[in-house]
Simulated assay, not measured.
Amino acid sequence: MKSLKIKQPKLLAQLVVERVRQAIIDGDFALGEQISEERLAESLGVSRTPVRDAMIRLQLQGLVSIQPKRGTFVFDPVPQDVIDVCRFRKMLEMGAIRLALGHARNALVKDLQMIVARMRDALADGDVVAYGRLDSSLHQCFVNHSGNPYIRDAYDLVSGQIAALRTTLTSPAHDLRRISFGEHERFLAMATDNQPDALCELLGAHIDRTEDVFAATLKGRREARGGGRAGSA
């Protein structure tokens, strides 16, 4: 007999987490911006309780900082934070690539083909938000196909921050997106040809350049506004 078990709906707090997480990634909230739980609850049509629970979960993902008696702020990294996150990311993605090519290459290549095709369309249309989301999806593919849940869990700790930084710090840089897209096409070709060493080398250079762009842009922004983290005295 076919199962008639009723699937439990997602908890309201999880829905709030997903909505706010995507808003931060898409740049709807600026780095360091204060988030009003009251206004957010009103905007989402929910009570403050699931919003408060969602903020706690988002803090665990590094996307917000809850400061007692001050409020909740979108994460506001200094250049060294960006460097540390990018180097952590590089270590995880390189390991994931080798695992993915070792036991799930066909599935990985199929997903990369689909994402690269959609990235090409987004780039041609000038759709910065769609391109950024697809960029994140492509790198997530390496992790998802690694077959290692510990790598996935570790990557989840920084994937939201990376996606938000990508949108916030590189969205005006059309030339950089074209360079990045060319490298993503090469990722696909190298995965198709089963070249883990070449792919890891290119990925390393790709992330190193991203690190430099993020850190330099962030440094310039912080100098322009006088430095210091959001919400600091």
Rank of each mutant, 00 (worst) to 15 (best):
L101F: 02
G102H: 04
G102R: 02
H103D: 07
H103A: 15
H103I: 02
A104F: 07
A104C: 06
R105W: 06
R105A: 09
N106S: 12
N106L: 14
N106Q: 15
A107T: 00
A107V: 05
L108M: 13
V109A: 02
V109G: 06
V109H: 04
V109D: 08
V109R: 02
K110N: 05
K110H: 11
K110F: 13
K110V: 12
K110R: 12
D111L: 10
D111N: 05
L112K: 06
L112E: 03
L112S: 05
L112C: 14
Q113H: 07
Q113A: 08
Q113E: 09
M114V: 06
M114C: 10
M114W: 12
M114T: 15
I115K: 08
I115C: 03
I115Q: 03
V116P: 04
V116I: 11
V116K: 03
A117E: 13
R118E: 15
R118F: 07
R118N: 06
M119K: 14
M119H: 07
M119S: 11
R120D: 08
R120A: 12
D121I: 11
D121Y: 04
D121R: 15
D121M: 04
A122N: 01
A122Q: 04
L123E: 12
L123A: 01
L123Q: 08
A124R: 15
A124T: 11
A124D: 09
A124Q: 11
D125G: 01
D125K: 15
D125S: 15
D125M: 12
D125V: 09
G126K: 14
G126Y: 08
G126P: 05
G126E: 12
G126T: 10
D127I: 13
D127L: 02
V128I: 12
V128G: 01
V128H: 03
V128E: 13
V128W: 04
V129Q: 11
V129L: 10
A130N: 10
A130G: 02
A130L: 13
Y131P: 14
Y131Q: 07
Y131G: 06
G132T: 03
G132P: 10
G132Y: 00
G132V: 01
G132N: 11
G132I: 05
R133G: 09
R133V: 07
R133L: 14
R133I: 09
R133C: 10
R133M: 08
R133A: 09
L134C: 03
L134Y: 10
D135C: 03
D135I: 04
D135Y: 15
S136I: 02
S136W: 08
S136T: 04
S136M: 07
S137T: 03
S137N: 12
S137D: 15
S137P: 05
L138W: 13
L138H: 00
L138G: 05
L138K: 02
L138P: 05
L138N: 01
H139Y: 09
H139K: 15
H139G: 07
H139N: 10
Q140H: 15
C141I: 05
C141Q: 07
C141P: 01
F142G: 00
F142P: 00
F142C: 00
F142R: 01
F142N: 00
V143P: 07
V143H: 03
